[in-house]
Design a protein around this nucleic acid. Structure first.
Lengths: 361, 361
DNA sequence: GGCAGCATAGTTAACGTTTTCTACACCGAG
DNA sequence: CTCGGTGTAGAAAACGTTAACTATGCTGCC
């Protein structure tokens, strides 16, 4: 009509996808009818229905998500946000989410933050804007910035009021009045159990390789370790705690430094299995046998724990199940009441004893 | 104005996010001005600018992506699609993408297909609709369905005409006239080199644990293996090829079966390092020492290769760099000419010799 | 002093759906 | 033979942006 005045002038989509209007024209019906055929929530005559279906097939039409979203329908997409895909544990959790989501015909998207809370906020923001059906955050938080809490709280509310949901997995809740679901796994308890195990085997000087300072997961595990030491009446040796990151390289370097400094310890509790792999490498370099000369334990119990030699004693965390549960809660929440305050679920962990710990006289 | 006639009647958003119009009203300017402040592509007076900025902050406004996309702007989002995040190799590649994207201020999203080409199409589709700036597909393809090729080709064209780009990474191109970028790493050559290595060490009966039949990566590696056998004049022993999947469990089971059947081979070439981990486990169960009784090699050279004992000889593939390169090409392509046919880049691989192979008399 | 030109501002038409409303046959019942 | 349904269909108003047009004061020049 209006813009057909000068044929080649206006911003004409060259070979873009066919629109609903195109389908309607092709089938000789109104746009509304096409929409109704697609939605199937309104009576349409047999003949019109067939013509529309045929046109859709012939034009290879597919609805534009954005237009749909703008018009108020939710996308069947669930977002999963973590620090780094390279970590086995969270990758397992991601798989759990994926599984549950696809079982229900939803698509899941993964975003990574590299531990940067700015990026985390940006991703949640993006997902809210994209009208994701739910957003799952997994893994500890690092920042203490008050700003962060405020913004995340706001995003949680905003998601909730848009019929979506923020799920916090393995991280501290935002507050009682914030509409989120929380899924935790017991870091403090697991670390307590593991350190107890080491203590019961006679170890008294245990090097604890923690994650970053002020990272919640890291701090919880350290707290469990400390509590066990305290309960056994062992001095809590702050000088035997080292902070690093959750990588093999970090475990290797930290252990090497300590060993080079001639420090005296009979066991190492690595905050993570991959960190423990680094400990193994450093020990080998100093000709220390595991577990005869040095006992080593980890946390997470990922597949790697079984491939290390000797096999690594670790704390089992049901990551995949965690992911499934998160997705389940998120997707079930679809029809939550407005006054709803939040679900809370706690997964337990347990020590898996393998061959990396020896009795110490 | 018009819709304020009956205050409480229409479908009123209860506590939804503030819109651009809200900001405009709050700042006492027109919507256009707000949009311009945001875009910064049009002169706005100092005072108006400040008022708008303040209103945005006070209302905590954030633009609606869908409306934006609908109005034709691209999202600064890049999508990365793979089969399964749990595989180290692709996780590394994902990290490379992530790195490069965030370096430029882009967000990256990961989607997983579980090897299902239907889901793959759906994800690419979704990303196209979401106006992603680029879509990167990594890993071999499994399907032979003609339908798949047709649809993917169409999506590639559609993405390209929307100013976006489809990047194929480690998988066969769709055709010369399809506007995609292709990044390959040499599976055939790497496998050839590895099998040559085994042959040069005197091994003649090599069990090859391939991935799924008709999966491109798997087939390429098998082809390289076969070519090496042929070049050395060794019978190509189809009975020494076993097809499975790229997991530890698969490697374990397949090897165990062969061993239990009393089959005779002196080396195992696992299609993947994690598969090799399974081989180690099976060998241990039969009291076979690696490499004295059985030589084992893998492919990918992920971190795990260094943690296995003995350390695994493997073919190094620069996954992280691959990811970075893919992202780089994708993001640089932003201003490609219409007649553009596609970039092509090939990464080389090389054997990393460790301790899992012994000389066979 | 009138007028071209510039710096800002506002209007309005897209973008592609969904979803009310309204319209129109056609049917059986009074 | 008219009159409320009922079953289908279309028109049009959202949804929240962007961008192409218009509109309006000014400034400065002839």
């Amino acid at each position: 009509m209006a813009n057909s005045s000068t044929p080649g002038s206006g911003r004409r989509k060259s070979s873009s996808s066919p629109t609903l209007a195109d389908v309607a024209a092709h089938a000789g019906v109104s746009p509304a009818t096409v929409s109704r055929v697609l939605a199937g929530n309104y009576p349409v005559s047999r003949s019109a229905n067939q013509r529309v279906l045929r046109s859709i097939r012939e034009l290879n039409y597919s609805a534009n998500t954005h237009a749909r979203a703008l018009a108020g329908v939710q996308t069947k997409t669930i977002a999963f946000i973590l620090a780094d895909v390279r970590g086995q544990s969270f990758a397992d959790a991601a798989h759990g989410v994926e599984q549950e989501a696809s079982r229900r015909g939803w698509l899941s998207l993964i975003g990574t933050t590299q531990g940067d809370s700015e990026r985390e906020l940006a991703l949640v923001q993006l997902m809210r804007e994209q009208r994701a059906g739910a957003v799952i955050l997994i893994g500890g938080v690092t920042t203490e910035a008050a700003d962060y809490r405020v913004k995340m709280t706001e995003l949680a509310r905003s998601l909730h009021s848009a019929g979506s949901l923020l799920v916090l997995c393995g991280r501290p809740p935002l507050g009682d009045d914030v509409p989120t679901a929380v899924i935790e796994y017991d870091n403090e308890q697991g670390a307590y159990a593991m350190t107890s195990h080491l203590l019961s085997q006679g170890h008294r000087r245990i090097l604890f390789l923690a994650g970053p300072e002020r990272q919640s997961t890291s701090m919880q595990r350290l707290a469990g370790h400390r509590r066990a030491l305290h309960d056994y009446g062992v001095p809590d040796g702050a000088e035997l705690v080292e902070h690093g990151v959750f990588t093999r390289a970090s475990g290797y370097q930290l252990t090497k430094n300590r060993l080079a400094a001639g420090q005296d310890f009979t066991a190492v509790f690595a905050a993570t299995d991959v960190v423990a792999a680094g400990v193994y490498a450093a020990a080998a370099e100093f000709d220390l046998r595991v577990p005869e000369d040095l006992s080593v334990v980890g946390y997470d119990d990922v597949e790697l724990a079984q491939d290390l030699r000797p096999r690594l004693t670790s704390v089992h965390v049901p990551y995949e199940e965690l992911g499934r549960a998160a997705a389940k809660i998120a997707l079930d929440s679809q029809h939550q009441q407005p006054g709803w305050t939040g679900d809370h679920r706690l997964f337990t962990t347990h020590v898996v004893v393998r061959n990396s710990v020896s009795r110490h006289a």
